[in-house]
Design a protein around this nucleic acid. Structure first.
Lengths: 348, 348
DNA sequence: TTGAAAGCGCTAACAA
DNA sequence: TTGTTAGCGCTTTCAA
């Protein structure tokens, strides 16, 4: 069995009472020692520590938080589009690295862009008494997902800014990054650049589109004449959209894709049509092996490790009492040149 | 502030007492309703539900588990090499999907192959009273990481089998998969096949090596004469090892890499040396864009989504009292042919 | 420096 | 069907 001990033979899990009895001290003394409180003599402390070790005692964090004034459980919740999305996974990892030092554990959950799931998971976290939450908002308005009585609960939003709620947020410079991409393609001689974007109800996607449009407008391009396909949310829909655009009359000489999966779809479409060395491509979001495909894909890289670390830092500050006005922190993007974005337009 | 309400204005978080008072019933009745226990009249139930909704009441799972006989917290722990590794992330995702239906939350943590961290995280989970754990073992012996008194705690191991502990495990057919790869290369005409492997203290890595060797021996290849490089744990070390092997006198005509990152290193080495269309490559583990590189990479695919789902199922069965003897469940691997594994040896 | 008693939010046991 | 009391493991308060 996975339960190792044979029936009946197992000792109950030790409590402070057991440790206190073995050490010959009061229970409160054990509590002081286990929580590193001052006011315990060295000798007593050692006795208690020894007893605890002998019994293999483990402090019950949740029971303690019940009576503790601060109610802290040293646990935080993390809500992501999907834990298996590489971008999200990097953020998760960065938060973990930042929080483990403080003895804080991270609960992560996937939302799959389902607003009901968002609310349900927030409730699940609240019911487990997390000290705070980091979340990627999905619902168009976040005011209702945090119950009134939990408004004291520190929350930091990532990737997208919250709506209907004042709170810290850590986001990438989406508009700026998209503008960089647009300008890069323009500077390379492209005038007809297609935009392939994610769902328009996602703020991030809208920002990227705005940055793209504004940059080209400023450069004198009539953006209303450019091919635009939005609401692409996976590889396949992006691939089909790209094929349609590329096989239309008067096709674009370059593509800009606003997101990882959309970039993958564009790459597949270009490859299928034999255009991967003829039509330029710049994607938002870096990805593994982006330099190993043919040609290497020029991207606007976000820095999930920075976003995660900053979110963790802000969340801990809030949990520890920081009460400055909420702020949005912007993490810069970087353009990485690899070849696909430097393909010139045809010269005829 | 992220704490929305202005100083002092916020109501305390409601408890069962508040709900009971508002509904005009006893606290135990509220408990019954919130836990869907039988024995409450429809009318009373509705009153309570209404009051709970008005107060935005959320059951405190952790406080409840304190007194509950089963002590369940509806929370499980998941220990992975790294939450940001795509293989791990898929497992995490699959477990989440399987458990969310049962109202069970998943805590995930990264271990980074540090045995001390493994033990620390197990303790962190125990201290938060998880109902069970799924873990990828790192330490060479797991007997000590689960304290005696917690032997009742259901544990399911994934990816690697435990040592010094009897427990359920869910693993890939590592030896069989590696054997498939070896035979595939042999059938393609290769006789000198290099093996590039992960750390030999990882059981999985040893199994793959064993399968590889046994398959070739059976086919009459003198495996002791083959180039072998082990203890490769990241892209860079694998790349250097591959370069060394490929530039040696009498280099191999094919490579087998035992893991994702090692495969990436091999791909880079082959590309750098201009050998990507000349030397065959089969990798263990599938990865994104494996078909978009040149040539597409033939792999032995594991199925993390199956491993995660099965681990979740076994863990829940144990938590719910299943006490059959512990068992190791093997999830089959699949060979996916994409080109790199089908390059023939030079014909001179 | 130490410990006894009360109580955190909840469920078990039992009584009404 | 409903409510009362005790107590889960811990921290707080306060007295010794």
């Amino acid at each position: 069995m996975s339960k190792l001990s044979v029936s009946g033979g197992s000792k109950p899990r030790p409590t402070m009472k057991h440790v206190a009895a073995l050490a010959g001290v009061g229970i409160k003394t054990v509590s002081r020692v286990m929580n590193d409180e001052a006011g315990v003599s060295q000798a007593t402390k050692e006795k208690v520590l020894l007893a605890a070790k002998q019994l293999n005692y483990e402090l019950d964090v949740t029971a303690g938080s019940l009576r503790r004034t601060s109610r802290r459980t040293n646990t935080v919740g993390l809500l992501l589009p999907s834990v298996s999305n590489p971008f999200s996974a990097e953020i998760h990892r960065a938060m973990e690295d930042a929080l483990i030092k403080k003895g804080v554990a991270v609960f992560a959950a996937s939302l799959d862009d389902e607003p009901e799931r968002e609310e349900a998971m927030v409730r699940a976290f609240l019911g487990r008494r997390v000290d705070g939450m980091v979340l990627t908002p999905i619902a168009t308005n976040q005011a209702h997902i945090i119950p009134d009585h939990s408004r004291e609960l520190p929350v930091v939003f990532i990737d997208r800014e919250p709506v209907g709620l004042q709170a810290d947020a850590v986001v990438a410079d989406n508009a700026v990054g998209a503008a960089k991409a647009a300008k890069h393609l323009f500077d390379g001689g492209h005038r007809k650049i297609a935009y392939l974007g994610d769902r328009t109800d996602i703020q991030t996607a809208r920002e990227r589109r705005r940055g793209f449009n504004e940059a080209l407008s400023e450069l004198g391009v009539v953006t209303s004449a450019l091919p635009v396909r939005e609401n692409l949310h996976d590889v396949e829909s992006a691939r089909l959209a790209a094929i349609e655009i590329l096989t239309s009359q008067d096709p674009p000489t370059a593509l800009f894709s606003s997101q990882n999966l959309v970039t993958f779809g564009c790459m597949r479409a270009l490859r299928e049509l034999g255009l991967n060395h003829k039509v330029a491509l710049v994607g938002f979001d870096d990805f593994a092996l982006s330099d190993m495909v043919d040609p290497g894909v020029t991207v606007i890289a976000q820095h999930p490790e920075k976003i995660g670390a900053l979110a963790a830092e802000r969340l801990m500050a809030r949990i520890e009492g920081d009460s400055q006005p909420p702020q949005t922190y912007v993490v810069e993007t970087t353009m990485i040149i690899r070849g696909s974005g430097e393909i010139p337009p045809p010269t005829n």
